[in-house]
Protein backbone atom coordinates (compact mmCIF):
# COMPACT_ATOMS: atom_id res chain seq x y z
CA UNK A 1 0.00 0.00 0.00
CA UNK A 2 1.32 3.39 -0.93
CA UNK A 3 2.00 5.74 1.98
CA UNK A 4 2.95 9.16 0.68
CA UNK A 5 5.07 11.17 3.14
CA UNK A 6 3.48 14.02 5.08
CA UNK A 7 5.09 16.79 3.05
CA UNK A 8 3.64 15.46 -0.20
CA UNK A 9 0.14 15.40 1.29
CA UNK A 10 0.63 18.88 2.70
CA UNK A 11 1.67 20.15 -0.74
CA UNK A 12 -1.37 18.50 -2.32
CA UNK A 13 -3.68 20.03 0.29
CA UNK A 14 -2.18 23.47 -0.14
CA UNK A 15 -2.48 23.02 -3.88
CA UNK A 16 -6.26 22.82 -3.52
CA UNK A 17 -6.85 19.10 -3.02
CA UNK A 18 -8.69 19.43 0.28
CA UNK A 19 -9.53 15.71 0.37
CA UNK A 20 -5.82 14.87 0.62
CA UNK A 21 -5.93 16.24 4.14
CA UNK A 22 -8.08 13.23 5.11
CA UNK A 23 -4.93 11.07 4.79
CA UNK A 24 -3.22 13.17 7.45
CA UNK A 25 -6.31 13.00 9.66
CA UNK A 26 -6.39 9.21 9.35
CA UNK A 27 -2.67 8.98 9.99
CA UNK A 28 -2.63 11.04 13.18
CA UNK A 29 -6.16 10.84 14.59
CA UNK A 30 -5.39 8.05 17.08
CA UNK A 31 -2.30 9.75 18.41
CA UNK A 32 -3.92 13.17 18.66
CA UNK A 33 -7.03 11.70 20.27
CA UNK A 34 -4.95 9.68 22.75
CA UNK A 35 -3.01 12.76 23.79
CA UNK A 36 -6.21 14.77 24.10
CA UNK A 37 -8.02 12.16 26.17
CA UNK A 38 -4.98 11.74 28.45
CA UNK A 39 -5.03 15.43 29.17
CA UNK A 40 -8.77 16.22 29.15
CA UNK A 41 -9.82 12.89 30.68
CA UNK A 42 -13.30 13.05 29.17
CA UNK A 43 -14.00 11.14 26.01
CA UNK A 44 -16.64 13.35 24.33
CA UNK A 45 -14.83 16.57 25.07
CA UNK A 46 -11.52 15.08 24.02
CA UNK A 47 -12.99 14.06 20.68
CA UNK A 48 -14.33 17.56 20.05
CA UNK A 49 -10.96 19.08 20.89
CA UNK A 50 -9.15 16.56 18.68
CA UNK A 51 -11.43 17.51 15.78
CA UNK A 52 -10.74 21.19 16.44
CA UNK A 53 -7.02 20.43 16.42
CA UNK A 54 -7.23 19.05 12.88
CA UNK A 55 -9.37 21.96 11.74
CA UNK A 56 -6.86 24.42 13.19
CA UNK A 57 -4.03 22.50 11.56
CA UNK A 58 -5.80 22.74 8.22
CA UNK A 59 -6.41 26.46 8.62
CA UNK A 60 -2.80 27.10 9.62
CA UNK A 61 -1.25 24.66 7.17
CA UNK A 62 0.08 27.55 5.11
CA UNK A 63 2.20 28.63 8.07
CA UNK A 64 3.83 25.18 8.43
CA UNK A 65 7.29 25.72 7.00
CA UNK A 66 8.62 22.22 7.51
CA UNK A 67 11.30 23.28 9.99
CA UNK A 68 10.11 20.50 12.27
CA UNK A 69 8.23 17.26 11.66
CA UNK A 70 4.55 17.67 10.85
CA UNK A 71 3.73 15.49 13.87
CA UNK A 72 5.69 17.80 16.20
CA UNK A 73 3.83 20.80 14.81
CA UNK A 74 0.50 18.97 15.16
CA UNK A 75 1.21 17.88 18.75
CA UNK A 76 2.07 21.44 19.65
CA UNK A 77 -1.34 22.54 18.38
CA UNK A 78 -2.86 19.66 20.37
CA UNK A 79 -1.05 20.66 23.55
CA UNK A 80 -2.11 24.30 23.24
CA UNK A 81 -5.71 23.34 22.43
CA UNK A 82 -5.84 21.14 25.53
CA UNK A 83 -4.36 23.88 27.71
CA UNK A 84 -6.95 26.33 26.35
CA UNK A 85 -9.77 23.88 27.07
CA UNK A 86 -8.51 23.28 30.59
CA UNK A 87 -8.15 26.97 31.34
CA UNK A 88 -11.71 27.51 30.08
CA UNK A 89 -13.03 24.76 32.33
CA UNK A 90 -11.27 25.97 35.46
CA UNK A 91 -12.46 22.91 37.27
CA UNK A 92 -10.73 21.50 40.26
CA UNK A 93 -7.90 19.16 39.24
CA UNK A 94 -9.00 15.65 38.47
CA UNK A 95 -5.85 14.06 39.80
CA UNK A 96 -4.78 13.24 43.32
CA UNK A 97 -1.61 14.70 44.69
CA UNK A 98 1.05 12.04 45.05
CA UNK A 99 4.13 12.95 46.96
CA UNK A 100 7.38 11.99 45.37
CA UNK A 101 10.19 11.05 47.68
CA UNK A 102 13.77 10.59 46.59
CA UNK A 103 13.81 7.11 48.06
CA UNK A 104 11.10 5.83 45.74
CA UNK A 105 13.54 3.93 43.63
CA UNK A 106 15.33 2.44 46.58
CA UNK A 107 12.16 0.81 47.91
CA UNK A 108 11.26 -0.77 44.62
CA UNK A 109 12.32 -4.30 44.11
CA UNK A 110 12.10 -6.48 41.02
CA UNK A 111 9.43 -8.46 42.88
CA UNK A 112 7.20 -5.42 43.34
CA UNK A 113 7.70 -4.52 39.72
CA UNK A 114 6.78 -8.06 38.75
CA UNK A 115 3.65 -7.88 40.90
CA UNK A 116 2.64 -4.58 39.34
CA UNK A 117 3.22 -6.01 35.89
CA UNK A 118 1.11 -9.05 36.67
CA UNK A 119 -1.63 -7.07 38.38
CA UNK A 120 -2.28 -4.43 35.82
CA UNK A 121 -4.34 -4.93 32.74
CA UNK A 122 -4.52 -2.33 30.02
CA UNK A 123 -7.62 -0.63 31.40
CA UNK A 124 -6.04 -0.32 34.82
CA UNK A 125 -2.88 1.19 33.40
CA UNK A 126 -5.03 3.71 31.56
CA UNK A 127 -6.78 4.54 34.83
CA UNK A 128 -3.45 5.07 36.54
CA UNK A 129 -2.27 7.36 33.75
CA UNK A 130 -5.53 9.28 34.15
CA UNK A 131 -4.57 9.92 37.78
CA UNK A 132 -1.51 11.83 36.69
CA UNK A 133 -1.84 15.61 36.39
CA UNK A 134 -3.16 16.57 32.92
CA UNK A 135 0.07 17.90 31.42
CA UNK A 136 2.09 15.00 32.89
CA UNK A 137 -0.18 12.41 31.30
CA UNK A 138 0.21 14.21 27.97
CA UNK A 139 3.97 14.37 28.27
CA UNK A 140 4.62 10.76 29.23
CA UNK A 141 2.29 9.50 26.48
CA UNK A 142 4.06 11.68 23.95
CA UNK A 143 7.44 10.37 25.05
CA UNK A 144 6.75 6.66 25.21
CA UNK A 145 3.87 6.07 22.88
CA UNK A 146 4.66 8.51 20.11
CA UNK A 147 8.38 8.07 20.61
CA UNK A 148 9.13 11.72 20.22
CA UNK A 149 12.67 12.76 21.06
CA UNK A 150 13.42 14.97 24.05
CA UNK A 151 14.16 17.88 21.70
CA UNK A 152 10.84 17.47 19.94
CA UNK A 153 8.92 17.24 23.22
CA UNK A 154 10.74 20.29 24.55
CA UNK A 155 9.69 22.12 21.40
CA UNK A 156 6.07 21.01 21.81
CA UNK A 157 5.64 22.04 25.43
CA UNK A 158 7.96 25.04 25.29
CA UNK A 159 10.59 23.88 27.80
CA UNK A 160 14.31 23.30 27.55
CA UNK A 161 15.61 19.82 26.84
CA UNK A 162 17.04 19.46 30.36
CA UNK A 163 13.83 20.63 32.02
CA UNK A 164 11.87 18.16 29.94
CA UNK A 165 14.22 15.36 30.98
CA UNK A 166 13.82 16.19 34.67
CA UNK A 167 10.07 16.54 34.27
CA UNK A 168 9.83 13.16 32.58
CA UNK A 169 11.81 11.51 35.33
CA UNK A 170 9.47 12.93 37.96
CA UNK A 171 6.41 11.81 35.99
CA UNK A 172 7.76 8.26 35.76
CA UNK A 173 8.17 8.22 39.50
CA UNK A 174 4.66 9.58 40.01
CA UNK A 175 3.23 6.88 37.75
CA UNK A 176 5.13 4.21 39.63
CA UNK A 177 3.81 5.48 42.97
CA UNK A 178 0.26 5.61 41.63
CA UNK A 179 0.42 2.06 40.35
CA UNK A 180 2.07 0.82 43.50
CA UNK A 181 -0.51 2.54 45.70
CA UNK A 182 -3.31 0.82 43.83
CA UNK A 183 -1.90 -2.65 44.34
CA UNK A 184 -4.02 -4.85 46.60
CA UNK A 185 -3.11 -4.48 50.26
CA UNK A 186 -2.01 -8.11 50.74
CA UNK A 187 0.62 -7.86 48.02
CA UNK A 188 2.00 -4.66 49.47
CA UNK A 189 2.09 -6.14 52.98
CA UNK A 190 4.01 -9.15 51.75
CA UNK A 191 6.87 -6.89 50.65
CA UNK A 192 6.70 -4.54 53.61
CA UNK A 193 7.42 -7.40 56.04
Amino acid sequence: MNHPPDHIIIEKTLGGDVNAFAILVDRYKQLVFTLTIRMIKQREEAEEIAQDVFLKAFQKLQSFKGDSKFSTWLYRITYNACLDALSRKRNSPTHHAYEIHDNVLSITTPEIEAQIDAQYERAEVVQCIALLPQADAFLITLYYLHEQSLEEIAQIIGLTKNNTKVKLFRIRKKLFIIMQSRLPQEIKMRYEK
Binding site: Q30, F33, I37, R122, V125, I140, Y144, L145, F176, M179
Partner: peptide
Protein backbone atom coordinates in the same frame (compact mmCIF):
# COMPACT_ATOMS: atom_id res chain seq x y z
CA UNK B 1 9.13 -0.13 33.16
CA UNK B 2 7.27 3.08 32.17
CA UNK B 3 7.77 2.39 28.48
CA UNK B 4 6.36 -1.10 28.90
CA UNK B 5 3.21 0.11 30.67
CA UNK B 6 2.56 3.16 28.51
CA UNK B 7 2.89 1.03 25.39
CA UNK B 8 0.60 -1.53 26.95
CA UNK B 9 -1.98 1.17 27.54
CA UNK B 10 -1.82 1.81 23.79
CA UNK B 11 -3.70 4.36 21.77
CA UNK B 12 -7.33 5.34 22.15
Amino acid sequence: WSAKHIKEAGVE
